[in-house]
């Protein structure tokens, strides 16, 4: 009972955790430039460098959601600028289908976002990250994939009727 105000406070100060998959040639370099130019952007993103946006297997995104991250950003080079010529074109097709399917099963599209950010677009990177963070903050924590209380973790007939 005494713990309650504590948790409430915690919830008020809740900050979303966001995983950003950034391609090493454009978006990662863009993020680097944003930092070195001392442009501030929310500290909620954890950056994961990938060789190309085409490297981002949709399974990475599903698994990230399942591990309880509140939001995901995938960012790569603008169309035509891919270091490997067509990685981002191929990625774009996968992401188009993925984001529609995620929406169809009930994952708010604001949780999983995509962007093109070049190595020089330091302002755009800060803007994209801020927008994603604001969106995810508005949505609240990713409660769909919380770890259940282990004592309750039994599949049984008491689960509610769908």
């Amino acid at each position: 009972m005494e713990a309650k105000p504590e948790t409430e406070k915690k919830e008020k100060n809740w900050e979303p955790k966001i995983l950003a998959f950034l391609c090493r040639w454009c978006s990662y370099a863009g993020a680097d430039l944003t930092g070195s130019s001392r442009i501030s952007y929310p500290a909620n993103v954890r950056i994961l460098r990938v060789p190309c946006s085409g490297r981002v297997n949709p399974l990475f995104i599903l698994k990230t959601l399942r591990s309880g991250m509140d939001g995901i950003l995938v960012s790569g080079c603008h169309p035509g600028d891919c270091h490997y010529t067509a990685g981002n074109y191929n990625a774009r097709r996968k992401f188009a289908i993925l984001s529609r399917l995620l929406e169809y099963v009930g994952i708010d599209p604001r949780r999983v976002q995509f962007s093109w950010v070049s190595a020089s677009e330091r302002d755009k990177f800060a803007k994209v990250v801020s927008a994603v963070v604001a969106d995810v903050k508005a949505l609240g924590p990713n409660e769909l994939f919380q770890l259940p209380d282990f004592g309750q973790m039994t599949k049984g007939p008491t689960s509610p009727d769908p």
């Binding site: 004592g151 973790m153 039994t154 599949k155 049984g156």
Partner: peptide, 26 residues
């Protein structure tokens, strides 16, 4: 499935403030 459940938590662990706790499921 009501006796031998398809999904059954057996034990859980938590690490907080330097302590580590293992609890078995009752």
């Amino acid at each position: 499935n009501l006796f031998f459940e398809p999904l059954k938590g057996l034990l859980g662990w938590k690490a907080a403030d330097g302590s580590f706790q293992v609890n078995s499921c009752p």
